[in-house]
Nucleic acid binder design. Structure first.
Lengths: 338, 338
DNA sequence: AATAATAAGTTAAACGTTTAACTAACCGCT
DNA sequence: AGCGGTTAGTTAAACGTTTAACTTATTATT
């Protein structure tokens, strides 16, 4: 059996309360006693029981982490990075993370994740877009909730977001400063706030540099911006518009699809046409040429979310604070000055 | 505050022991009382406290799930599927899953995951190849351990594996039966048991059909079989060997790389050369033509592992039982009869 | 010298379950 | 009437912590 606080107390010749106070390094304990106890703890390799603690503190020490299955299973390791960030920061705050997925078509008749029903979490982190019925259901519970990379009901819930507008501006500005004027935007699922903001950034830069917006340069697919959609968007774009010299894709996946189209149709990258993505998730360098992109600090989103969560839990508060993280321009080989 | 067993007892006019017995549906309770209690539980939306339970049962109700960071962050959603399978099955067994990653170059001076040090798990599932020093460290603890898709110290630990030999045979046989004779194998990290087995399956089929093995048809890269390596392997293969009509790639990622090489060099798939992968992780259909492959039941590996784990935990045993899961041949458009 | 303040610890109750041991009521049998 | 067996519950201890309230010893203040 694992050593308990009693074993430590016996070994150090003090009461169990003293051991507990040392563990929480309470001021009321002398250095001498503290050393004795710490020594015993070390010797026995004692760790407080999570259950016993949870029982008396009336908490679980766990934080739930929810995302939709298709986000989790998506090819690009975007949300997995966010999760790892959270998990890392949870460590620092003595919290455990319980990861689970929900159906991307979650509706009000679906069951909530078990850790919510059983109230086995002290707070919930939700990453990425989730169905509205889910948000509705969890709003009845009163643990703190933090959204990451998505921010519905912004007045009510806290969120960690990325500066998508700035990213859109950065990407577009990079192309404009490289001498491009016929710059297209390709995107999908335009209702998604992040995508919308990236497009807004694109528009801002056009305005800032006195370029005229042109609807035929903006190609938006209905659903999720993946490779196939990127391919299709590029196809339609180049069919009606021969003189494009640069493309800003709303994310890397679509950019890869568009690159495929260009390769298949003899359009040289970046000589005939530059392209820049968003997210920086294309790690596999088999994609040629290396894709310029906007780096999103994925791990950091996770750590920031968990920091916020730990703070809320510790101070027993719920607020709607937002954290906005800056992005970086990463210039690789798919964009070129003309 | 959440309702406790006392609230239920009061509402149903019984003792708390009775409530507990009902919850575990012990035989000693009459149908009448059972109904009363169940009713109260429903009304109050009562769920037993995880902590209180853990305290008295001396367990945590958690299962650890470990993989290396590069496995978790890999582009292909292989291990994520396994995790989801485990998580699902954990649900059925009233267990929670604690996911964490370790460094892929974990060495003996690294710290073990927190849930191990604090003994906050009842068992550990390890997915994919992990560094040996890690295995060495955890061998000191005495919770049950199950390896998934990797099986070191096979006499000691339990494992859930995929029939890689059968898969290799299935893939090769499919090509042979389609009239191919000059069939190449490309792979990487040949020390990995799974890869080695896939190659063995390839060899078996050659033997079975009386084809002569030819070393120049087997191209093996040093390190991890990813896209880049697939591209390189294909390049070397076709440089020394012009008349190949089919390739069996040790996994989908390498196959995609090889396909890229073929496209770049005017080799038509499947007209000039067929190709088949392994794993069935290439979900994005932007890859043209659709890749024939060997489907590995990823979710099922996860569920089987967790079933085994739940069984071991419940019966307080540790054994070295193995579960071997069959694979399926998936014929798409990248392989063709000649 | 008496009193107050501070320091350093201890005692004991509480958290919400589980379960072995006990009780009470009833039944059937001699 | 007395006994054993069965059924359907209840009692109470235990699990390993935390923490408010208490104790005791020492020091400082008047």
């Amino acid at each position: 059996m694992n050593p308990t606080i009693k074993d430590v107390a016996k070994m150090a010749n003090v009461s169990i309360a003293t051991v507990s106070l040392v563990v929480h390094n309470h001021k009321r304990i002398s250095q001498e006693t503290k050393d004795k106890v710490l020594n015993a703890i070390e010797q026995l390799n004692y760790h407080p029981s999570h259950s016993a603690r949870g029982l008396v503190r009336r908490n679980s020490g766990n934080v739930g982490f929810v995302l939709t299955d298709d986000h989790f299973l998506r090819t690009e390791p975007f949300y997995t990075h966010i999760f790892i960030g959270s998990e890392f920061e949870a460590h620092e705050n003595e919290l455990y993370v319980l990861l689970t997925t929900i159906n991307s078509d979650f509706n009000s008749s679906n069951k909530l994740p078990r850790f919510i029903l059983e109230r086995n979490i002290d707070g919930l982190i939700i990453a990425g877009k989730v169905p509205f019925p889910f948000i509705e259901q969890i709003s009845k519970y009163n643990f703190p909730i933090i959204f990451v990379d998505y921010s519905p009901c912004a007045k009510k819930y806290s969120g960690v977001l990325v500066d998508n507008i700035q990213g859109g501006e950065l990407a577009t500005e990079h192309l404009i400063k490289s001498g491009h004027e016929r710059i297209a935007f390709i995107g999908g699922d335009i209702e998604h706030p992040s995508i919308k903001d990236r497009l807004n950034g694109y528009k801002n830069s056009f305005e800032k540099f006195g370029l005229k917006l042109n609807d035929s340069l903006i190609e938006i697919e209905e659903d999720y911006p993946g490779r196939t959609n990127g391919y299709n968007a590029a196809e339609r774009l180049f069919t009606k518009n021969k003189d494009i010299t640069a493309i800003f894709s709303c994310n890397d996946a679509m950019a890869v699809g568009a690159m495929q189209y260009m390769k298949d149709n003899g359009i040289k990258i970046p000589d005939d046409c530059s392209i820049i993505g968003f997210d920086d998730v294309v790690s596999d360098n088999a994609i040629e040429p290396a894709l310029s992109t906007i780096r999103v600090p994925k791990m950091e989103m996770g750590t920031e979310a968990m920091k916020l969560m730990a703070h809320m839990i510790k101070n027993n508060l719920k607020d709607n604070r937002k954290v906005l993280l800056p992005v970086d321009l990463i210039i690789r080989e798919s964009t070129k000055r003309i």
